[in-house]
Design a protein around this nucleic acid. Structure first.
Lengths: 131, 131
DNA sequence: CCGAATCCAGCGGGATACTG
DNA sequence: CAGTATCCCGCTGGATTCGG
């Protein structure tokens, strides 16, 4: 894995690459940017538990999310190859969501991180209390 | 670890708890909320690589961050027990940042996730291209 | 049932200037 | 050097309404 510092150090000195080469692409930043919104990780968590969920099931599983944000989030996750979206053309409509293999891999890492967060949340919250 | 669904399922059916009991505390959501901003994870990554960094060293290591956001981010990470902040009362000022043991644990999990992100970014970006 | 389309408030966060 | 202090813009995302 490359660090940001290392990447910055290896940047050739092109003068005036359009508008400052601050756009140096970094895969970590890119992936992080697309997953660190308010709902993505929570949705992935639910889809990692349940193998397949319908729209309203997801909505019920993630308290507080609006239809708008759920739709937006699912579309983005689909774009990023994390989620497979299956539409059943019928009345009433039926849409099912499931993690892709890629999504499952991500969920594996995420799960450990969340488990850790759960175990240490007391200490984290405790840190906020002092001063 | 508790899932949101499980937590939601155990919610008693109080009708009209002020304004819907959406405030049900969830440690995962709490921790995620405090770490999924634009810069926190990137800073933690750098501090995981380097054992200790001064303010401007960090600023240089995370391209694009402003002093304002770096200060804000570091204060929040300190609040959450992720980072230890050491001030040397001298002129010119000198402030050093380092991960706490808690921060190192988090960094461990985060590193694996970022490594994965690096290895699969091509596939993720590829997914975005189609349609 | 699963959205799309608006409208709009809040705040994340960038630019800039000042301070000890 | 390592911050504060303002100003202010844009996007996130909540509420609501309409549609197939």
């Amino acid at each position: 894995m490359e660090t940001i510092a290392a990447r910055a150090a290896t940047q050739p000195k092109k003068k005036s690459e359009k508008k400052s080469a601050a756009a140096a692409y970094c895969p970590v930043r890119d992936v992080l940017h697309h997953l660190s919104d308010k709902w993505s990780m929570l949705v992935i968590r639910e889809l990692g538990t349940q193998p397949v969920l319908r729209f309203n099931e997801l909505k019920g599983a993630v308290p507080g999310i609006s239809q708008k944000m759920l739709t937006t989030t699912m579309r983005k996750l689909e774009q990023n190859g994390m989620v497979r979206r299956t539409v059943f053309p019928q009345i009433p409509p039926r849409v099912e969501y499931a993690l892709t293999p890629l999504g499952h891999e991500f969920h594996g890492h995420l799960t450990k991180l969340m488990q850790w967060a759960c175990n240490n949340s007391a200490q984290i919250v405790g840190s906020r209390a002092r001063k």
